[in-house]
């Protein structure tokens, strides 16, 4: 599983990354979490509000910071 956290590194993006790591740990997933800060790449995903969470190339959440519980459900499904 490939997880990407899209955002330019502001407080919200860091929070999303942190929540994603916690969610992975709690689920026992060994997914690779990549931070994407390049605007061209962020825009090419069609994301217009950061932060965003991309799982296996698919945009799951954007423009807000989900809590750990929501990310866990997302990664399970």
């Amino acid at each position: 599983m490939k997880i990407e956290v899209l955002g330019s590194g502001c407080a919200n993006c860091k929070k999303l990354e942190e929540n994603t790591r916690t969610a992975c740990k709690e689920l026992g997933l060994t997914a690779k979490i990549i931070k994407v800060q390049d605007f061209k790449k962020i825009a090419s995903y069609g994301v217009m509000a950061t932060p965003a969470l991309v799982v296996d190339g698919e945009v799951k959440i954007y423009g807000r910071v989900p809590d750990v519980k929501e990310i866990k459900e997302l990664l399970k499904g």
Binding site: C10, F39, A43, G46, V47, M48, A49, T50
Partner: peptide, 17 residues
Amino acid sequence: TPFCSCSAVPLFIGFME
């Protein structure tokens, strides 16, 4: 609309496109 200055660029690109 939600706005933090870090969203300005993706928003701008999306609008132009």
